[in-house]
């Protein structure tokens, strides 16, 4: 067994084969158990985010109906809610933004996040459309993709709106996965 390159190696001695086999097997089994303990403990903590559900939450009061122009022009509003960031809980802070617009006697709410790569879209009043400054996607007022060459896989994400007490616009605010054809909540 011993190599000539290894000055400290002992001369080959014929060991008790059965004993040697048991020792080797035990060393490998114990060594394996030792080797996995710390990585497994670490892996659990590392994988912790996978078991956390996103807080889809309920509807949030975003604006008063009176704040929306009668002509259906979109207005951008911050969505204030309780933000949970790991251990911190901050009530009443902006967690996102929506464009609200009147559509007849209803209200349409579009998430300002571009479904392509997550940039915020702007409303351009001159062209009366939404425009994403990152990769030049443009969206019609109803959120549909306007430009056939747009890299966005889907239109802007509309959100569920409720009018309460006649004038309060409540929005069920959600973010959706970027880059997919379907609207999948994150």
């Amino acid at each position: 067994m011993a190599s000539h390159d290894c000055p400290h190696c002992p001369p080959p001695t014929p060991p008790d084969d059965r004993r040697s086999f048991l020792a080797k097997a035990a060393a490998i089994i114990i060594g394996g158990a030792l080797a996995i303990t710390a990585p497994v403990a670490g892996l659990f903590v590392f994988l912790d985010p996978l078991r956390r559900k996103s807080d889809s939450g309920g509807a949030v009061l975003v604006a008063s109906l009176n704040a929306l122009p009668e002509n259906g022009e979109p207005r951008k509003f911050s969505v204030l809610a309780t933000r949970v960031d790991a251990w911190n809980r901050s009530p009443n802070v902006p967690i996102g933004a929506v464009y609200l617009q009147r559509v007849g006697d209803k209200v349409r709410a579009l998430n300002v996040v571009c479904p392509h790569a997550g940039c915020f879209v702007d409303y351009r009043s001159a062209k009366n459309h939404f425009f994403c400054p990152c990769h030049n996607s443009s969206f019609a007022l109803d959120g549909q993709v306007q430009d056939p060459k747009s890299p966005s896989p889907r239109g802007l994400d509309d959100l569920v709106v409720e009018i309460r007490n006649g004038t309060e616009v409540w929005v069920k605010f959600q973010n959706f996965r970027a880059g997919t054809h379907d609207k999948i909540p994150v």
Binding site: A41, L43, F44, V45, F46, L47, R51, A86, W87, N88
Partner: peptide, 29 residues
């Protein structure tokens, strides 16, 4: 592995360790 969840700052260090210890999967172990 602890580094993944630790935040060194006087308003976040204890808080992140609390989170590891009491909220994260097997963090106490």
């Amino acid at each position: 592995a602890l580094w993944v969840a630790y935040s060194a700052g006087s308003q976040t260090a204890w808080e992140s360790v609390y989170y590891i210890q009491h909220e994260m999967w097997g963090g106490w172990f």
